[in-house]
Each structure stands twice: as structure tokens, then as C-alpha cells.
Design a protein around this nucleic acid. Sequence first.
DNA 1: CCTACCGATCGGTAGG
DNA 2: CCTACCGATCGGTAGG
Lengths: 197, 197
Amino acid sequence: MGRPGRKEELLQAAVTLFSQKGYHATTVREIAEACGMQSGSIYAHIASKEDLLFQIVIEVADRFMEQVGPIARGEGRAAVKLGRAMAAHIAVVTDSLETATIFLHEWRALSPDRREAVAARRTAYEELFAAIIREGVASGEFAPSVDERFARLLVLSAANWVYQWYRPQGGLDPTAVAERFAELILGGIERRGGEER
Amino acid sequence: MGRPGRKEELLQAAVTLFSQKGYHATTVREIAEACGMQSGSIYAHIASKEDLLFQIVIEVADRFMEQVGPIARGEGRAAVKLGRAMAAHIAVVTDSLETATIFLHEWRALSPDRREAVAARRTAYEELFAAIIREGVASGEFAPSVDERFARLLVLSAANWVYQWYRPQGGLDPTAVAERFAELILGGIERRGGEER
DNA sequence: CCTACCGATCGGTAGG
DNA sequence: CCTACCGATCGGTAGG
């Protein structure tokens, strides 16, 4: 045992270290030291190093789903929903940059069983975006030529890759990031016949 | 010494292992074993495990530059050049999927000096795409509202993320992948006033 | 949560 | 390129 919240301290230390150096390059000794305890003591709180990774990954996967799910299932024009879904996704990435980095970068380090569990959640999540795109095409908001799979990949590529370049100190508002991407993806970069979009 | 080409064998084994398990999870013993030698013998050919990683990363970085550089510096409409540049980039990713995965995923494992050298090449490379976008905006091909940075990020996010989902067995032609992305990015997904794009 | 320690394994070297 | 081996360090455990 020990004081409560001690496991959260370990998780937080693991988040910082895993996101900075990667899972394999981080040692349990470093995690323990960051919490002021001996390396062996860590196992009074967790079963294994991989458990820490798994908890981190699952938590952020759930967060993506919680934030984007209601938007995708809600009412409204597809273009608006797509913009909101992107904003919600990007907000999760930027607000939890370290955790999101681990989710997107370190899931390979999980054991096969757990990796599969994560992959299943991920597929379900991506389907939220696919559904919005399908709606837009069906309603005529989006061009009939739009390929559901590639449109989804484009949206999620841009939204995921944010973890690679976004730095909070950059002073860039997550909402602004999402808006620019949504504008580009919805309208395209080529000049239109008129000038509006 | 030893028979020539032995270093290339080691590099190839490292490529496979680094791309599958990651740099830190790969041991020099595995690399040596894949080439039928003892772990200590590897150091007759290379100075360190990190040297293998660095060579792999630099080679593919150069390949991106060689393939896309002439397109970016060449003549033609910006929209055409952007499509070609994307196609060239994606072809490098798909043709060298393992190497590209290491380049995009494992460069963090490099020592600070080498990481910086890679970052510098990367910045120069990204500038190729920025230049094409600038051209398109300047010539009026692209909308004046197009943000150079975000357009570049959108293009490179989609083109880079390919390594995360592309599988050669999928039977998907790299050219087709690039064409779909280019079409979506140039034209947008919203239906236009007319029906063409 | 500490002390003490485990078996395994790591990247790399010496000396041929 | 092998044999033999190094010091260090790894994730994790026993027994309080």
C-alpha cells in the first residue's frame, strides 16, 4: 500500500518519460526515481511496466471516443460535424500531447493481445469519421466523387500528425489549427470559379 | 574484413528488425544472427548499433530529396507539380516501407547531434513543398486564402501517414494513393457549384 | 514501500 | 569473423 494517488503519480511519470524517450528506452528505475521511490517499490502499485503503457494508451483512446463520438452521432450538416470532429480530435492531441504521442507512437510496444484490443478501438473510432463522410456524400453536401476511405485517411492523417509538430509554446490555438485544416479539406486549395467558399 | 557486401546484409537485417520492433527493442545479437554471425563479429563492420540506424535514416532522407527535389524545382503548373511531388513522396514510402517507417518513427533514438542533422534535412525537404504552394498562390492557381504552412502540413501529413496504414499486399497502387489524395487536397471534398473540378 | 538481490541480457571489446 | 568475456543494466521478486 501507501498513500493514495501514488499510482497516478507513477502513471504521470511514465507519461512524461514514455513520450520523451519512448517506452523501451525508459526504465522502471527512472519512473520510480521520478516518484521518489526505489525501483522495486513500483511493483507494490503495478504489475508490470507494460501495464503502465496499456493504461495510458487505453485512457487516451477512450478520451478520443468520448469527445468525438457525440459529435459524430449528433445532428447537423456533415461539413459542420466534420469540422467539429476534427477540432475535438485535435484538442485531445494538443491538450494531452504527451499521452497522445504515446498512443500514436508506442502502441507497437504492447503485447499482441493488448495491441489488438487497441487496434479494435481504433477501428471503431475511425468509423466515426467515415460515417460523417458517408453522410455528407449521401446528402449531396460532399462531391459524389469523394472516396470515403481516402477522405477519412486525409482527415485523420492531418489530425494525428499534429502530435509530430505541435508545441504548446508555439502559441497556436488548437481550435485555429483545426479550422485551417477543415477549411483546406472542405474547400480544397485550388481557386474556385468565384472567390467564396 | 570478410566478404564484400556484408555490411549491406547487416543494414538490411537492421532495416527489417528496426521497422518491426523498433530500434530499442532490437538487439545487436538479433541483427548478427539474421546474418549468420556472432554478436561480437558485427563490430568488424560497424562502429555501433546507432551507426546502423543513422545510415538507414540518412539514406532514405536523401532519397526523398532526390525524388522530389527535381519536381519541385522544375517547370509546370503548381497543381501538377504538387501532385507529382506527392506521388514521388508516397512512392518512396511505399517502395521502401520499412526504411521509411524507420525514418519517420525511429529518428528520436538518434543522439542529439545526429538528430539535428536529420532535422535539418527534413526542414530543407519540407521547404520543397512550401515552395510549390507559394508558387501556386502567387500565380493565382491556388486560392489567396491558402495558408502556406497548413497546406504544407496537410500534404505532408497525408503523405507521411501512409507508412502507418499502407500494406503492399493490399494491392493498392502507390500512384493511385497519391492521385486520390492530390485530388482531395486540390479540389476539396465539398461539392462545387458546378460538378467538375 | 525498503533492502537486497535474482537471472537474463544488453552493447561492446580484447585478442586472436 | 570467432571465442570469450566485460561491466552495466534490465524488469522483476522475496521477504519483510
